[in-house]
Computed example of a mutant assay.
Amino acid sequence: MAATNIPTTPHVFTAVVLRAFDQRRLGRWLLKAAAGLSLLYILTPLIFVTWLSFCREEIPSFPPHGYSLRWYAEIANNQQFIDGFLLSLQVGVIATAIGLAVGIPAALCIAHFRFAGRGFLNNLLLFPLVVPGVVLGTAFYVFHVQIEIATNGNVPILGSLAGLVNGHILLVIPWTVRLVTATLANFDRTLEEAAQNLGADRWTTFRRVTLPSILPGIVAAAMFGFVSSFSNLEISLFLVGPGRTTLPIAILQYLEWKIDPTIAAVSVLQMLVVGAALLITDRFVKLSRVV
């Protein structure tokens, strides 16, 4: 019996190896198929909106009767879209700058120091990411009303540009704290100690050592914070004043009275702006390092 089993042992081993290889190959194919289906699920709405923006007819049909750029020209003729874009751009830039100025020191404090309530402070700063936008907008509106009541109208913040920026800053701070803290997690603090041992003060150490190391997180936070502010609808609905409108609000108001591919064209331009920001940011700072 022992002599009979000897010749078959290599064949058994080969069969086991081939079976394991086939299972790994099947697993890779299944993983690639799942990733492809997920990507298709994500891209399908974007592809459909892009196709819709080039349809010639006002009410699209399939098969389409032709393609045109007329809906992109309609954007330039709609002053509400232009004013909304300019206001969204202005609010996004200001809110991003102030949010970075507040969020970077907060992230440095959380990453470098150990103190009572550190975890609570970190969760509190990230809270706006999990709270629904309608709740935040309502809270800000009530807060601004209470400020005007308490000051007898001497601080006209309700419906003002400052009040709108104030609400959008809350969208930038969580991104800044999260991404800068993630960057600092891999930062070697002995570099700061070495710089200070060589005579550098705290500001010089931060500017020459710490800042270049956390720059990818700062750039990524600025990009994500700006996109969150630029495309925000819920908070803006509660805080925007008379005679002002952001681009998301302008789109919503347009849809109340008319439905045509102009909205699809506006959406495509928004996607191009965000996509360009992502490509430019990744060109100078690899987002894969922090995201």
Rank of each mutant, 00 (worst) to 15 (best):
T9K: 14
T9P: 04
T9G: 08
T9Y: 08
P10F: 05
P10M: 02
H11E: 14
H11N: 10
H11L: 14
F13D: 12
F13N: 15
T14H: 13
A15M: 07
A15I: 01
A15D: 07
V16Y: 05
V16I: 14
V17N: 10
V17S: 10
V17T: 15
R19I: 11
R19E: 09
R19A: 14
R19Q: 10
R19L: 13
A20F: 05
F21A: 06
F21E: 09
F21C: 02
F21I: 01
F21H: 06
D22R: 12
D22G: 13
D22N: 14
D22A: 12
Q23F: 04
Q23C: 04
R25A: 07
R25W: 03
L26A: 15
G27C: 02
R28N: 13
R28L: 09
R28I: 02
W29Q: 15
L31T: 06
L31E: 11
L31A: 14
L31P: 05
K32V: 07
K32L: 10
A33T: 13
A34F: 14
A34Q: 13
A35N: 05
A35V: 03
G36H: 04
L37R: 09
L37K: 08
L37I: 14
S38F: 12
S38V: 15
S38C: 12
S38R: 10
L39H: 05
L39C: 11
L39S: 12
L39E: 06
L40A: 15
L40R: 13
L40W: 15
Y41F: 12
I42Y: 07
L43F: 04
L43W: 01
T44P: 11
P45S: 11
P45A: 11
L46Q: 10
L46N: 07
L46V: 15
I47K: 07
I47S: 04
I47T: 06
F48M: 15
F48Y: 15
V49Y: 11
V49S: 05
W51G: 12
W51E: 10
L52R: 05
L52M: 09
L52E: 04
L52F: 03
S53K: 03
S53I: 00
F54P: 01
C55P: 00
C55F: 12
R56L: 08
R56M: 07
E57R: 01
E57Q: 04
E57G: 03
E57N: 03
E58D: 14
I59G: 00
I59S: 02
S61W: 06
S61D: 10
F62T: 14
F62P: 03
P63A: 06
P63M: 08
P64T: 13
P64S: 01
P64W: 11
P64F: 06
H65M: 04
H65I: 01
G66R: 05
G66N: 04
Y67D: 00
S68F: 00
S68A: 02
L69H: 05
L69K: 04
L69I: 10
L69P: 03
R70Y: 02
W71I: 00
W71S: 00
A73D: 09
I75N: 00
A76W: 01
A76S: 14
N77T: 05
N78W: 02
N78P: 03
N78Q: 09
N78I: 00
Q79K: 03
Q80G: 01
